[in-house]
Amino acid sequence: MYIRSASAVSPQASFNQMLSTPAVYTGDKLNCIEPDYSKYIDPKLIRRMSRIIKMGVAAAMEALKDAELSMPDAIITGTAYGCLADTDAFLSRMVEFNEELLSPTSFIQSTHNTVGAQIALMLHCHHYNNTYVHRGSSFEAAVLDTQSLLEEGEAENILVGAVDEIIENSHAIISRFGIYKESESNKLLNSGTDGTMAGEGASFFVFSKNKEQNSIAKLEDVKTYYKTGRKAENIIHNFLMENNVPVENLDLIILGNNGDSKTDEHYNTVAQHLFGGKRLVGYKNYCGEYPTSSAFALWMATMMIEHGKKINNATSPKKILIYNNYKLKYPSLYLLSAC
C-alpha cells in the first residue's frame, strides 16, 4: 500500500523546523505545539472539542488536503489512552456530584472513538469507521486493518492515524511508576539514566491501494508482536528476509530508544549486532515516549522520503526501516520505500 500524505500535530512545529531548529523541552514531558484550529474547524464545533480531538481533527484534515482527497473510503484510528481530558472531567464530576449532574458533553466525548467519529461527522463520511485501543500496538492494529481493507478491495483510499495526549492527572498517575525523569529533550537519548520523557501527538496518513501521482512512499510491510519471547535481532532479520531486503540496502533505521537505560540496552544490542551502529536515528527526542509514538516515526520517515532531507548524515533515504518496542512488550516494524 502507498502513503499519499502524512500530517502530524506534535511537539515539533513542522518537519522543516524539526530538522533545522528542533523544539527543545526541559522537564519530564514534551507537549504538542498546536496549530491555529480555526483553519480546520468551524467555531461552532470547536467549543465542545477537547485538545486531543482538535489535534486529531487538524492532523486528519491536513492529511486529506495534502492527498487532495475529500472523502476517504474508511477512517481508522489507533489510541491507547483515548480522550483523557473528557474522561477526567466526566469522572471528576461523578465524584464531585455523587454520580449525579453529569456533563453530557464530557460523557459523549470521553469514548476512545471520539476523534475518528468527529472526523467522520465533519466530512459527512458514513463509511467504515473503526478505532483500535490496543495499548502499545494501537496504531499498528489500525495500519493492519487498513492493509486488510485495501488488499481485499474494500477501499481505495483510507484515512488512518493515531492520537494520544498528556493531561495533568494522567501524567501524575503514570509518573508514580517512576518511568519519567527530568531531562532536556535534545540530550534525552544519551542521558544514560533510568526513565524517559513523556510525549503526545496526533499523526494521520492517507493510504491508498494503488500508486497515485502524488504517492510519497510505499509501505512495503508492517508487523507487530506482543510479548513474543523471540530475540529482536531474529524478528527484524526475518522481517527483512521476508521482504528480500538485505540490511545493507537500508538507507536509514529509525529506532524507538527513549533514553531510559533500562530499555535502551535492548536497542543498543539491535543497533550493534544487526546494523553495526550505522545509519541509525532515534525519534523520541522529538516527540517523547507514548504508546502510539510509532505513528510519529512513520510520519517522520515519510517526511524524510518526501523532502529528501538529512538527519545524522543519512542523505535522501530511499528505504527506511522503523523499529519500536514500546515497554519491550510491543515490537513493531515498518518498511518504507520511496516511490
Partner: peptide
C-alpha cells in the same frame, strides 16, 4: 445563540447544579 440538543442537556445540568 444557535444551541442544540446537547446544549439543552447541559442547561438541565446547569439548573440542577
Amino acid at each position: 445563540l444557535g444551541l442544540d440538543s446537547i446544549d439543552a442537556l447541559e442547561l438541565i445540568v446547569l439548573l440542577q447544579q
